[in-house]
């Protein structure tokens, strides 16, 4: 029985001035899969994430999440529809504590004015805060909940951003270079944590340059080059594909080179 795709991109197109940054991109993300989105710098990976989360409107095509067309939805309603994401450069709120940043991730789950207007700690004996603390602990983040995020190491902040994205109980979690800047031990921990997340039924779509991380985590990979999809298949055979090799080697770059990450 074929697995229903959780996310479908159909002929997605975006132009910035004369530059086509997404050129009729179509692919499906199967339900429950762990999928990688890779490509050389400037291929349009982050742009595609921004199109999916509604930062920019589409110039053509459509995006479907769980059988529902979402490209017309305002950005703020897409998290409620089940799509959550992290950012390439850490975008935690600098003036919010660790726990407040994580609780912001619950915003889409708060329903009605009562949830919005009542002090958070009064709501059923602080269940929001308790849930956030449990999630942090499950992710192995051992910091004071009231700590200033700017005082924490890079790897910890990176993880907090993933936890924040998980607080909305998404069906699809999109991570933009989650392993960038992490040391090998942190990368392995993150991979194990994300496998647990996927085992709980969350579909993953991950932009990443670190190919060993991609091989470890993702069974499927799509490759973008100059806004066009050039590969869609198993991760283990991605490096054997002629078009992919040309895209990377033709620009004298090797995947996972850890260079600048302007995607």
């Amino acid at each position: 029985m074929p697995v229903e795709p959780i996310l479908s991109l159909k002929q997605v197109t975006k132009r910035f001035g004369g530059l086509t940054v997404a050129d009729q991109v179509s692919f499906d993300v199967p339900q429950g899969s762990r999928m990688a989105l890779i490509g050389p710098n400037g291929a349009g990976k982050t742009t595609l994430f921004n199109l999916m989360s509604g930062v920019y409107p589409l110039d053509g095509g459509s995006i479907w999440l769980e059988g529902r067309q979402i490209d017309g939805l305002p950005s703020r309603q897409r998290i409620g529809a089940g799509l959550s994401r992290s950012f390439q450069n850490i975008r935690l709120m600098p003036h919010l504590s660790v726990i407040e940043n994580v609780m912001l991730g619950q915003h889409a789950k708060a329903s009605g004015l009562g949830d919005l207007m009542t002090p958070i700690l009064w709501q059923r004996a602080g269940r929001w805060r308790q849930m956030a603390i449990e999630r942090l602990e499950a992710a192995g983040i051992d910091v004071h909940p009231d700590a200033e995020v700017s005082s924490l190491p890079y790897g910890v902040r990176k993880k907090i951003e993933v936890v924040r994205a998980l607080m909305s109980s998404p069906s699809l979690l999109m991570l933009d270079e989650p392993a960038a800047g992490l040391n090998p031990r942190e990368t392995a921990e993150l991979s194990a944590f994300l496998k647990d997340v996927a085992a709980d039924g969350v579909t993953l779509l991950v932009v990443e340059h670190d190919m060993s991380f991609v091989h470890d985590l993702c069974e499927r990979t799509v490759v973008l080059n100059f806004g066009r999809l050039i590969y869609n298949g198993a991760t283990r055979s991605v490096q054997d594909d002629a078009a992919v090799r040309e895209a990377y080697l033709g620009s004298r770059r090797v995947a996972g080179d850890g260079g600048d990450r302007a995607a």
Binding site: R76, R85, S168
Partner: peptide, 8 residues
Amino acid sequence: LVSTIMGV
């Protein structure tokens, strides 16, 4: 932007 993406 991030607030919007978080559903605010």
